[in-house]
Amino acid sequence: MKRQVRASNLMLHSITRVVTFILLAFSIYLFFAGHNSPGGGFIGGLMTASALLLMYLGFDMKRIKKALPFNFTTMIAVGLLVALFTGVSSMLFGYPFLTQFFDYYDLPVLGNTELSTALPFDLGIYLVVVAIALTIILAIAEDDS
């Protein structure tokens, strides 16, 4: 059984095109909503991964690989390092590992925003989750000989 472009799958194609963007936008919302309300790096990451998976389902593998030229294993490593570095950064200032800081800033466009060190940590988690979920599923899917 080979995975080919199924031209008849018009329905899936057209829905994927629309839904993927909604899913991606929602995942970004979830990612930023985390911290004090439901959401965060893990959930946002899973949502992004499911959006990307939908793209893999809707189109064939080669085309998506061209559109998303990421090496997911590298992404895992980068995510881990980002998260770790956030934890370590507090050590550099003499606080215990993983101590988090936050403050309010006036940013252009966004207005008064809370910026915390939990955010880059979450970003690391986000990257790891997206990459791991896709690595697992693609590894199984590619083995389909």
Binding site: F42, I132, I136, A139, I140, D143
Partner: peptide, 20 residues
């Protein structure tokens, strides 16, 4: 529970691939 879920998610997917 969130932590345990994430861990068992990883474990389960590993186990699935391994048994496959």
């Amino acid at each position: 529970v969130l932590t345990a879920l994430v861990i068992s998610f990883g474990m389960t997917s590993f186990l699935l691939v391994l048994s496959y």
